[in-house]
Design a protein around this nucleic acid. Structure first.
Lengths: 187, 187
DNA sequence: ACCTGAACACCGTTCAAGT
DNA sequence: ACCTGAACACCGTTCAAGT
């Protein structure tokens, strides 16, 4: 395969960025994982900014299709909304990792412009999906589904961040339960 | 003053860490800001881990006294809880900065043990204060105030993170409004 | 097309020396 | 007590050069 190195770099970079952020991405370690030299990565990605943008873009594309799959499996919008926190839970369950875009949100000041745009696209994908389902479920009054969608997205991202800081996935579950208890998310 | 350098280092490190995280702290830039040489910082802090821990400790101490001041000003627990988001708002209003401990929560994997402990102490301070006020306000049934306190803390931290990623303090305000609308926070 | 060696700039840290 | 110059080891990044 002509693009196997490129794909391997993207996959390794995604895993690293979920645990160490954009700043924690380094070409020597990345190259070691893939089995090439650090300088070779520059053949596939002209700069760290390009790699970062490609990783973040791939990340929201993957999330978008995971959300669509979920909708295909669970067509009832209320049951589908209930399952939304699974997406963020998975990262914690995989080596206490977190959402790449939440990490990058913290690193905002140090992000190249192209990476910032992909981070925003990730948020947009999540908010659009949530908003669509909230409307379909008629859980909020018309015209408020987008604001509610943003609140859910922010609260879930916060729960993941706090749970990660204690390496405690049970804390994540408990926070999500609290959100359900106040009906931020459907119970 | 014998400790003016030490204090200046702590203040500069706090500002930097709120924008660039623990990884973004570097002794040369820090020294430039303070007007001494990088090597001189080691006279005051034996290592970067020690500086990081001192900064995070000072950060939660300052937050603890800000919360106590707020309580002294606004003794009504419900009104005081309403004002809680002001604490996180202030960082955004100061150069789109964020909570040092939220940033460090993301950087968890790369934090020295002593720093991790201070980050947890920050969360503990916030949760304890919120829990105390929730009980005093009798806003949640007995025995649930701590869980609710954690939910508020996580949701507010998430709102700050998302608002920062768009440099949009109005988004923060709107997210807090949404939390109030679902009564996660008192309206 | 794909990869590498060698170099550059930077950073955390140390230490002997200065006042 | 407080600070500095100079150096060391290391790492992210770049680029001209290899096949």
């Amino acid at each position: 395969m002509s693009s196997s190195s490129r794909e391997a770099i993207l996959a390794a970079a995604k895993r690293t960025a979920q645990a160490h952020g954009y700043a924690g991405l380094n070409f020597r370690d990345l190259a070691d994982e893939v089995g090439i030299k650090a300088a070779s990565i520059y053949y596939h990605f002209p700069s760290k900014a390009d790699l970062g943008a490609a990783v973040a873009r791939r990340y929201w594309e993957d999330t978008a299709s995971a959300l669509e799959s979920m909708l295909a499996e669970t067509s009832d919008p209320v049951r589908c909304l209930r399952r939304y926190p699974e997406v963020f839970r998975k990262a914690l369950a995989t080596g206490n990792r977190m959402c790449l875009c939440s990490f990058m949100a913290a690193e905002y000041d140090d992000l190249p412009e192209a990476v910032k745009q992909e981070v925003q696209a990730f948020a947009d994908v999540n908010v659009a999906w949530l908003s669509r389902l909230l409307s379909a479920a008629a859980l909020v009054s018309d015209g408020e589904s987008e604001q509610r969608a943003r609140a859910i997205f922010a609260a879930v991202a916060g729960a993941q961040l706090i749970a990660r800081s204690r390496s405690d996935i049970a804390l994540y579950d408990s926070l999500i339960d609290s959100y359900r208890a106040v009906a931020l998310l459907p119970a």
